[in-house]
């Protein structure tokens, strides 16, 4: 199981949680529910493949990688996912 390193804590990688976050970012950007779900599944599959040989990654790395994977399907949603925490 891959570990996700945050500033203060370390948590196990949770594909469901990642899928929900991707779906939420997509829905925030006016993507229809079905499309958002589909996008989340494809992004999570890509991230799963990327993580196979990695015992630990930082939360930032995971975020950037997820945004890059989202960008293959929807650049606008990827932009929102990547920049939401940089709004203020």
């Amino acid at each position: 199981m891959t570990q996700i390193l945050n500033k203060k804590t370390t948590v196990n990688y949770d594909k469901e949680r990642l899928g929900q976050a991707v779906q939420k970012a997509a829905r925030s950007n006016c993507i229809l529910a079905g499309d958002a779900e589909n996008l989340a599944q494809r992004v999570v599959a890509k991230i799963d493949r990327w993580l196979t040989d990695k015992p630990e990654v930082t939360a930032r790395e995971l975020r950037l990688q997820t945004a890059a994977a989202m960008g293959d399907y929807d650049l606008e949603a990827a932009y929102l996912y990547e920049n939401e925490k940089r709004l203020f």
């Binding site: 939420k24 970012a25 829905r27 925030s28 950007n29 006016c30 529910a33 929102l80 939401e84 709004l87 203020f88």
Partner: peptide, 19 residues
């Protein structure tokens, strides 16, 4: 000054995100 705009952007985006 854009703190107000940033907060409204996040608020409306987040509300849409949680259906």
């Amino acid at each position: 000054f854009s703190l107000g705009v940033s907060m409204l952007t996040l608020l409306s985006g987040h509300l849409r995100g949680i259906e």
